[in-house]
Design a protein around this nucleic acid. Sequence first.
DNA 1: CGTAGAATTGAGCAATGTCAAATCACGTGG
DNA 2: CCACGTGATTTGACATTGCTCAATTCTACG
Lengths: 238, 238
Amino acid sequence: MEHLFRKIERRDTLTDEERRVLEQAVSQVIDLPARKLIVREKVQLDHSNLLLSGLVCRYKDLPDGQRQILEIHVPGDFLDMHSFLLKKLEHNVATLTPCRIAFFPHDRLKAISEEHPHLARMLWLGTLMDAAMHREWILSVGRRSAIGRLAHLFAELLIRMQIVGLASDSEYMLPLTQVDLADATGLTSVHVNRMLRELRDTGVMSLRDGRVVIEDLAQLHRLGGFDPGYLYLDKQPR
Amino acid sequence: MEHLFRKIERRDTLTDEERRVLEQAVSQVIDLPARKLIVREKVQLDHSNLLLSGLVCRYKDLPDGQRQILEIHVPGDFLDMHSFLLKKLEHNVATLTPCRIAFFPHDRLKAISEEHPHLARMLWLGTLMDAAMHREWILSVGRRSAIGRLAHLFAELLIRMQIVGLASDSEYMLPLTQVDLADATGLTSVHVNRMLRELRDTGVMSLRDGRVVIEDLAQLHRLGGFDPGYLYLDKQPR
DNA sequence: CGTAGAATTGAGCAATGTCAAATCACGTGG
DNA sequence: CCACGTGATTTGACATTGCTCAATTCTACG
């Protein structure tokens, strides 16, 4: 659970007691292969999932077969803490790579919300950061150019992977297909391919063999109009 | 606060005690004119705002002057409950029409989170529904056609206005300009104008003098690929 | 060696944007 | 009551971004 603790400690402080409560709220840990559905939309749920390792995405499908990825999750992210109160989801959650996942039964989360208000606020905070990322994602697909959307996505994931210790200054593993990237950015895979080539040809960054290598971070940020304010990286009591 | 209570009671039950606690958490009620900034991004906040009457939007601006509206708020919505834990926002909140707004100081919200866990979960739930609407918004701008985005927006607002008693079966007031609609849907105002004409010419709906009149709801839903599941309209203990 | 998924490329096209002008609605001052 | 000014809507002509379709190449793996 170290990834989760790192993520929280970046924004507030956890007591040892709170860490213990969180650890004891886990009922089960499972391993899943890549491309496996974790939560299907509209089914009643009795637990929330924490991603321990691997990459996961949330997505919605349209009747005509189009898909939109809503968020990409890195280790330390709760994948569906919102199901604790929503009881079911309106979208799907699936692995992108092989993953390890911890179950948090809703009744234990409820107990936390009754007995550990500060810890409950930390869980709430996590869902608020999801919403903040959603808003930035809306801005991306609504107003940024194709290359800007991709640049922004790679810039966001760089920071989020760094927070949990899974990225260096300029590199991280991102084994997504170009179809995945298209579904995340609201583009087609053909156009993603062309934009990736442009990023490569202009020396900004490359994505090869599932590894992102950033050569010119300033230019990547400029292309994506990237401002990390929406990730709320300041530590303070909440 | 009747609008808020109706909204909550649609998804769960509030005790009289909880209603009283909520009412007593208000420190101030103010009136604002149309087109007035309520919360500016990146400034420290000490209270959250509840919309009592009028329409409000949240939006982000890009350096090049483009704007993206992230959510449109109807009476009964908290405009920035997330600022309770985030402490500042990464986007702006502004009135679209003249509005009445109630202040909820963060220290009183904190007291609620310590002393009234169920009520705290209701507030949390509100932020989760914002996030669910964000996700549907991502799907709209990411994958729907221009006319589908508009149709979806009008269909969503119809239901949300109905819940708080501000829409009939087929009509509600929506005094937005075509520029506003463009900023909400990620289009240009010129194109919005053309799509609105198409909706009018095909007898689906019209928007005139700030009033939406829906003539063919089934067709509106079809065009927008509208499925209200994401609004979580089922009542159950949370 | 064969297969399947993924990446790449090219040619043509459609949806939406850009720019500019005309019209409309409405409140204000004369 | 009318002329004026401002913002909103509407329209036309044209440009562009990103999409579609189809073929080719690449890569991994049995």
